[in-house]
């Protein structure tokens, strides 16, 4: 194709592509992506581990369990994530002098948010199992702990796969909020690159944001696929 055949808008769009393909820029985007992945993965791990434990504890009907549990759940849910990020990052530093990095604050906020959501999923899933499951196990002489461990929890977790994977992708997609507490994650890196070239190559925005769109897709889609795969694999037994 001779250069004269390319129409002028295409030239400017392709002109943005070299900004993306610039080795230096790609490296910066990769570094930003690592920050995103680090925060998301840590938060998801915290949410899964703590969420399952707290969800199981929350099955107890005692007030001493239910009151703090409800309080935790509602405060985490009612307040928007961005407000929690500000409270933890700026508020706690002001009040107590705890100055955590933006990343740590992010992991804390997203981790606790995920924990609350996961805990309620686990609690609801276990308590929705038929009472006869417990009674059949009781009648066989299993202890309360054994009933949870071998009968209720495995069945509840299997039912939970779609909902918890959905929660994981929600956490991943919420990480760009970190920009607002000074964390330079993948989206922020993209903005910075675009800004440096704003006057010379305005079309860079298309390529950079397009690339970031692709990155999010490339992370979230396999996660969603794994949900389907796990469900099918456990279908016979679930």
């Amino acid at each position: 194709m001779s250069p004269s055949a390319i129409d002028p808008t295409a030239i400017s769009a392709l002109g943005g592509l070299d900004v993306l393909l610039d080795a230096n820029n790609l490296q910066r985007l990769a570094e930003g992506l690592l920050v995103t992945l680090k925060v998301a993965a840590s938060s998801i791990l915290i949410a899964l581990a703590l969420g399952i434990v707290i969800g199981l504890i929350a099955l107890s009907r005692r007030r001493i369990v239910q009151v703090p549990y409800r309080l935790f759940l509602e405060t985490v849910r009612i307040v928007p994530q961005i407000v929690w990020l500000f409270i933890v990052f700026f508020g706690l530093a002001k009040l107590f002098g705890w100055s955590w990095s933006g990343e740590t604050s992010g992991i804390l906020v997203f981790g606790l948010w995920g924990t609350a959501e996961m805990a309620d999923l686990v609690r609801a899933s276990v308590s929705s199992l038929p009472a006869h499951q417990t009674q059949s196990a009781q009648a066989l002489g299993l202890s309360r702990m054994q009933i949870y461990r071998h009968v209720l929890v495995p069945q509840a977790l299997r039912r939970l796969i779609p909902a918890s994977i959905n929660l994981a992708t929600r956490i991943i997609k919420t990480t760009p909020l970190l920009v607002l507490i000074t964390v330079v994650e993948v989206l922020k890196v993209g903005q910075q690159i675009i800004e440096t070239r704003l006057l010379t190559t305005p079309a860079a925005a298309f390529w950079i944001y397009g690339f970031i769109f692709f990155i999010y897709f490339a992370i979230c889609y396999p996660v969603s696929l794994s949900s389907r795969w796990l469900e099918e694999r456990w279908n016979v037994g679930g």
Binding site: P130, H132, Q133, Q135, S136, A137, Q138, A139, L140, G141, L142, H150, V151, P154, Q155, R158, W234, G237, G238
Partner: peptide, 26 residues
């Protein structure tokens, strides 16, 4: 209960376990 077996009207097997594992669990 380990000495008194009971079978209920609603046949609640443990759905995540194979037939063999249902029987060997207890």
């Amino acid at each position: 209960r380990a000495q008194i077996g009971m079978v209920f009207q609603s046949y609640e097997l443990f759905n995540h376990l194979s037939v063999l594992d249902n029987v060997t669990l207890a």
